[in-house]
């Protein structure tokens, strides 16, 4: 464990707390993509299936349970919560996710760390899917132009978590002799790159104070 990874995990937890606060606390799903929420639920339910046999680290075990629980809670409220459904904009949240899920599934089968292990295929699928899972959310924000304050902090924290993981992989590459995780590096690079445009506008808008809403052209 190193500081980058720890901060990355904390940023990830923060993104969940912000989203739960908005959807469950604020009873509003305005500007939030259900498609992204559902893809993240798939990402965690597939990647953390090793909860059933991998007890190597209590820290990981607890956070895996937390991430699966939080992502399923978000999907549940967005699908069945009366006020959440009323504020969710289904026709704007229209990114064709089948064009994301299918290629990731093919890549997961073809490019993974152990072609004899179904779990490695599922694990690789989950890594690839996470890299693109934010697209429907960014697509929705782009369409709406204006990003509500809490939503902008949620997306920022979610983007920051994987950016911190990139630093964590660089750190581990330099400090651990034969550490190499090409699959997560490349996926994490793609994932973080997708946020660059948002990060730029987030920084521009927050320069003048944390409560300004983010404007996307």
């Amino acid at each position: 464990m190193n500081i980058f990874r720890f901060l990355g995990d904390m940023s990830h937890i923060l993104s969940f707390l912000l989203l739960l606060h908005k959807i469950v606390g604020g009873k509003s799903a305005a500007g939030i993509s259900l498609r992204t929420a559902e893809m993240y639920a798939i990402v965690f339910c597939t990647r953390y299936i090793d909860l059933l046999w991998n007890f190597a680290s209590l820290y990981n075990y607890l956070l895996k349970l937390l991430f699966i629980g939080a992502s399923l809670t978000i999907v549940y409220f967005m699908r069945y919560g009366p006020s959440q459904k009323a504020t969710y904009n289904a026709d704007e949240d229209a990114f064709p996710v089948q064009y994301l899920i299918a290629p990731c599934a093919v890549l997961g089968v073809l490019i993974n760390q152990d072609h004899s292990s179904p779990f490695e295929m599922v694990w690789a699928f989950s890594i690839y899917l996470e890299a693109v899972a934010i697209l429907p959310q960014l697509f929705l924000l782009q369409k709406q132009g204006e990003v509500e304050n809490l939503t902008s902090h949620y997306v920022f924290a979610l983007g920051a978590y994987r950016a911190l993981y990139l630093l964590n992989w660089m750190f581990r590459f330099m400090t651990e002799p034969d550490y190499q995780q090409r699959i997560v590096w490349l996926s994490g690079l793609v994932q973080t790159a997708l946020y660059c445009d948002f990060f730029y506008h987030y920084y521009q808008s927050k320069k003048g104070g944390l409560n300004k809403s983010v404007k996307l052209p």
Binding site: A56, L63, K64, F67, Q113, D114, S117, Y165, Q180
Partner: peptide
């Protein structure tokens, strides 16, 4: 192929 690194990260 690289031996399957055990997945010690989230």
């Amino acid at each position: 192929a690289a031996e399957a690194e055990e997945h010690d990260e989230l």
